[in-house]
Simulated assay, not measured.
Amino acid sequence: MFNTFTSAQASALGIRPEVLHTAQSCCLLRQSRGIYTVLYPCRVHPEFVGLIDDEESVTLARSLREDGTNTGRAARFWRLAHMGLITVAPGIRTTDVVSHESAALIRCVPILPMRLTKVMVSNPGRSETQVVCRRRKRSVPEGSVGLWQGLAVATAARAALEMASDVSVEAGVIALDHVIRTAADPDSMRGVLLGMVEADGRFARSARLARCLAWATGLAESPAESLTVVRFAESGSLPRLRQQVEIYDEHGRFIARVDFLLDDDKILETDGAAKYKTIAQGGYRRDGEDPLEAEKRRQYALQALGYEVHRLMWADIIDPARFRKRMRQARIVLGPRGTRRSYGNTRL
C-alpha cells in the first residue's frame, strides 16, 4: 500500500534485483533494506506501474521533483511514504503498539525530522533496534490505542506525550500544539493530557514533558509557530511574546491577526499561506487578489500603525543559532544562549 512493496513481492512479480537497483536513480525510493516506494510511473521501468495504488503520493513526488523547497508538500509525501513502510515492515509483533513519531504520522500529527526511516513501536517486553523497527519498552494503556490497517496504533494524544517525553522538546511542543489546537474543545484536551500524565509514572517524572506542556499553548497554527515559541522559551524571553494577536486601527477597524506580538511593538510572522486566505475564508486577502499583493498590503497597513514587522522563514527557526542571528538582525534582545540541536530539511 501507499506505492510501497518489498523485494520479495517484486521477485514474485518477476522483477529482477538489478532492475530494483537501477530504478533507484529514477523512479524508486529505497526506504529500507528490501523495501521500496514507487515515486511515479516511468517509461524506462514499466514493471512498477502496477504497484502504484496511491495517486496523491505520485502527485506529491512529481511536484517535489520540480520544486523540492516546499516543506508542506514534502511533509505530506514523507508521511505517506512512512505509512507505506509501516504496512510492509517485517518484525512488528502482535504485542507491539505503533507509537511515537510513527503513530503521530498515522494520526496526522506533524513530526521532526520530516523523514522517518524506522517504524517506532512500544512493547511491554524489551527495547531493541532492528533494521526497520525501533522498539521501546513501554506499556501503552488500552484506552490510548486504536486500530489502523490491522495494527495497534497509539492515539494522537498518546503519541504527542511520548514524543515530548522520549524525543525532544521541539518535537513534543509541535505535536502537543497540534493535538490541543485541533481538538473539538482545546481546554478539555489539555485536561485529558494532564490526566494521562498523572496516570503514567514515567510521564509524571519527565521534566522535558512538563516543559513541553507548559510551552504548548494550542495557539500555534504550524510547526514553525510552535518552534518559534520554543526558541523564545529557551532564551527566557517567552513572557514578552503573545500569539495570534488581532490588530485594529485607531477607528477600531480590524487590520490583521498576527502570529506573534513582541514587546507590544514588534510583529513576528512565520512563513505560511494561512494568513493569506480570502476574507470569506476568514483571512485577509480580497477575492481574486494575488497572495503576494495581499502580503504587501497587509505589511504596509501594520507598518503604518507603527509596528515593526519581521518575517521568519523555516530556515530561520529550525536552527537555534540562525534564529538568534536573525533576532540580532531585527534588534530583538533575547536571554542567555541555550544549547539545542537543529534539524535540517529533508528532501527527495
Score class of each variant (00 low, 15 high):
I174F: 05
C27H: 02
Q329S: 12
G72L: 09
S99F: 00
T182G: 04
H45T: 06
Y300R: 14
G14E: 11
G236L: 10
Q24E: 11
R347K: 11
S127N: 12
S11C: 05
G72S: 09
A23W: 04
R242C: 07
K277N: 09
D265T: 10
H310L: 06
G344S: 15
G14L: 06
R340H: 11
L348G: 12
V19D: 09
V145C: 11
L112I: 15
S57A: 15
V49K: 14
G335P: 03
T346H: 13
L161R: 05
H178I: 06
E162F: 03
D54K: 10
R328L: 14
S57R: 10
V19P: 02
D264M: 10
G84W: 03
V98I: 12
P186L: 07
D166E: 15
S139L: 15
R253K: 08
I52T: 11
V229Q: 01
V229T: 03
R76M: 14
A157I: 03
H21M: 05
P336N: 08
D316Y: 04
R240T: 10
F77T: 07
A154H: 00
D265W: 08
R240K: 15
L334W: 02
A233V: 01
A61I: 09
V97Q: 02
Q329K: 15
A8W: 13
K137S: 10
R107A: 09
E56S: 14
A204M: 12
M189V: 08
C42Y: 03
D166W: 10
A104I: 00
L238S: 13
R311Q: 10
A321M: 13
G72H: 11
K118S: 09
E225R: 01
T182H: 07
G306I: 05
S102Q: 04
P291F: 03
A74R: 08
S11F: 07
I111F: 03
V173K: 01
T69M: 05
V119C: 04
C42G: 05
T117V: 14
S139E: 13
T22V: 15
F5M: 04
